[in-house]
Computed example of a mutant assay.
Amino acid sequence: MKQPFAALTRLTSAAVLSLALALPALAFDTRATSAYVLDQTTGTVLMSKNGYEPLPPASMSKLMTLYMGFEAVRDGRLDLTERLPVSEHAMSFGGSTMFLDTTDRVTVEDLLRGIIVLSGNDACVVLAEALSPDGTEAGFSRMMTQRAKQLGMENSTFMNSSGWPAAGHRMSMRDLAILAQRLIEDFPEFYPMFAEKEFLFDEKEPANRFNRNPLLGLGIGADGLKTGHTQEAGFGLVGSAKQGDRRVIFVISGLETDRARAEEAEAIVNWSFRQFTQSELVKAGTRLAEAEVWMGSQPTVALVAPQDVSTLVPVLGAEAIDAEVVYNGPIEAPVQAGQVLGELVFSPEGLPEVRVPLVAEQAVERGGFVVRVRTAANLLFQQIVQGPETAM
């Protein structure tokens, strides 16, 4: 016999909730060959263009080296004032560098700034060799790949610490956005370094002292993170900007010039903040539905939002749309207060579906003898009324 609590119950929000959500925002047609835009505050993906495809990340992959360097400082494997030696391998790199040589011993703090502000390939190798299990950059690269997987970056494989062109050195735009979010959230003590516009190391090479991030200083809230450029990857940028209570993270790649990169990055920031707004939908504790309880001391239990629910919505126009409260019911007793019993599901036009867990407002104990007898009698009566075929 089919158990009554196995039935799927779907309640439209028309009975319990009215949500005023906006019409779809105007789509952004980016010139980048790949892009990913995330509203960090709500977790809403605003754009994904080839976002999951593993691509050459150029110097943007230096963010992974920085993440592992920050971890090492936090857990005591490195100290910011510790001076690290420069190997011949590190000194051999061209491109963007701190112009280090084997006579230098550089503090960890200077190396971190050298990577962030100057995009120093040599600084990456010095840090990599210090943290590698076998003292080599290759060993550190394997560590990078393993740690990336642990952080949820499924489309990232590292062959070096700097993003120097190499077969198989790949990251997806989504992975870079995940990494940017982790850097911002996990290391607030270090994140302000990404907004520094200038770093002159030891007054050696004043020509290479400026941050290449074109958005810093434009007054649009930009405060990070990393540019990248190789012939294979084109011009790219992992960026972030905060305006008010909202923060946006974006990744673009494949632009033809640094000017195009700057223009596209600024346009994406403006689009993200001007075409979308954060809207509070439900207050914590709001009753959204009453779910029937099977064999309980009470016939129903209220489903409530455990915390305030807000989402990102387009700003053009507004119209009411239905949401749904979805749960498997009747719910079998006993029920614990705060137990997750269902979801609030809604889909703002043009944005991904949002699913918010709903919990029991109060506990419902299992019913006593009288309740069990009454429930069994009601079930038997329903089977008689509906016919013998429903009993199977």
Rank of each mutant, 00 (worst) to 15 (best):
L46G: 02
V37S: 07
A58K: 04
L38N: 03
P54C: 04
G51C: 06
S59G: 11
Q40F: 05
P57F: 08
S61N: 09
G51M: 09
A32K: 11
K62V: 08
L38C: 02
Y52T: 15
S59N: 06
E53S: 10
P56I: 09
T33D: 05
T41Y: 03
Y52N: 15
T41H: 12
S34K: 04
A58T: 07
A58E: 07
V45Q: 13
Y36R: 07
A58P: 05
G51I: 06
Q40A: 15
N50Q: 14
P56S: 13
T44G: 00
M47K: 13
P54L: 07
S59A: 13
S34G: 04
A58F: 11
P54Q: 07
Q40G: 14
G43K: 09
A35I: 10
K62Q: 15
S61I: 08
A35F: 04
E53P: 00
P54S: 05
G51S: 04
Y52V: 13
V37C: 06
M47E: 13
A32W: 03
E53H: 07
P57I: 04
Q40R: 14
V45Y: 03
P57K: 03
S48A: 14
T42D: 01
Q40K: 11
V45I: 14
S34V: 01
T41I: 01
T44W: 05
S48R: 07
K62S: 06
T44R: 08
V45C: 12
S61T: 15
V45G: 01
A32M: 11
E53N: 10
P54D: 06
L55Q: 12
T44S: 12
Y36V: 11
K49C: 01
L46I: 02
Y36H: 14
D39F: 01
S61K: 10
Q40T: 12
A58W: 06
M60Q: 13
Y36C: 10
P57W: 08
T44A: 09
P54N: 06
Y36N: 06
P57G: 06
P57S: 09
A32E: 08
P54R: 08
